[in-house]
């Protein structure tokens, strides 16, 4: 019963496509449903049988959101904290990743590796409960700069793990040549190493940025009305007495559609980044 390489019976082919089509549909349906609900009129949202297609699209839910000054603030906060923390994580993380890539042993290497793994593995609440107390004590609760550095810190393990292999891939000879030409360590990093690792740094930035964009526990506990981010705003719909599904779906769409598009476009890089960042001890 030897099977020819690549050979498949027509029945097998149909089965293969059927299974993959159904699975893809299940995986994508919640996204489709979010977006379609966001452009439905209130009447169509609750109609049974559910209106899958053939309703009159409306932008009402979106315009309702954007007319609200709170929501503009929320979007601005989300973008600021995402961009800010990503830049900080990349700056700090690239230095550490470079050290881990180049020096096989140095003082504090093992403690650093242990710390990053523990930070990655520890449930967020464990950190957030005492942090609330600490930050309240020093008056930094609900402050945007504080949130930015905290976001950066929780994403440092990923940032460092994903960037390390990129630095390892840069030939040592290039650095040595620069040193012979009289460049200092900092100059070598700035003018030779960092530019060469830039594609990796950018890919890491996208990944860390996505994590920051999605972050919920930190801003919901340690943030304030003034620092409210999109996930916190979206979660606020729950406590509202009547769930307003239209605007909620619109806000959710604004959160997830950019990520879905980015995942599709950046697939290759994400795959590589994730498998590198997944485990690096």
């Amino acid at each position: 019963m030897a099977r020819r390489a690549g050979g498949r019976s027509p029945l097998g082919s149909i089965g293969l496509y059927a299974v993959l089509t159904v699975t893809s549909a299940v995986m994508l349906f919640p996204i489709f449903w979010t977006v379609s609900t966001s452009i439905k009129d209130r009447v169509d949202t609750f109609r049974l049988p559910p209106v899958i297609v053939g309703f009159t699209p409306t932008w009402k839910n979106y315009s309702q959101l954007f007319e609200d000054p709170t929501f503009i603030r929320v979007m601005a906060n989300t973008i600021i904290v995402t961009a800010g923390s990503t830049i900080v994580a990349l700056l700090i993380g690239s230095l550490a990743a470079y050290a881990l890539a180049r020096a096989p042993r140095f003082r504090g290497r093992r403690p650093l590796e242990v710390s990053l793994i523990l930070l990655r593995a520890m449930p967020g609440v464990v950190l957030v409960v005492p942090l609330y107390d600490v930050l309240a004590g020093v008056g930094l609760l609900g402050k945007m700069p504080m949130l930015i550095v905290l976001y950066a810190m929780v994403n440092l393990p990923f940032a460092i793990w994903i960037m390390t292999p990129y630095f390892q891939g840069i030939p040592m000879e290039l650095e040595e040549a620069a040193v012979i030409d009289g460049a200092s360590g900092a100059q070598v990093f700035r003018t030779v190493v960092f530019p060469l690792a830039l594609p990796g740094v950018v890919a890491t930035g996208l990944f860390v940025g996505l994590l920051a964009w999605n972050e919920f526990l930190l801003p919901v506990v340690l943030g304030s009305e003034a620092t409210k981010t999109l996930p916190v705003f979206i979660s606020g719909f729950v406590s509202a007495r009547t769930l307003d599904w239209g605007p909620l779906a619109a806000a959710s769409s604004l959160a997830i559609v950019p990520i879905a598009l980015l995942t599709v476009v950046m697939q290759g890089r994400l795959v590589r980044g994730l498998s590198q960042g997944a485990v690096k001890g």
Binding site: L28, I31, W213, L243, L248, A255, I259, A260
Partner: peptide, 20 residues
């Protein structure tokens, strides 16, 4: 690609849509 898309979506946002 289709199977990959849900991976990085905001859990809070998709959670609420599932609630719906």
């Amino acid at each position: 690609t289709a199977i990959l898309v849900p991976m990085l979506l905001t859990p809070v946002a998709v959670g609420l849509m599932w609630r719906f």
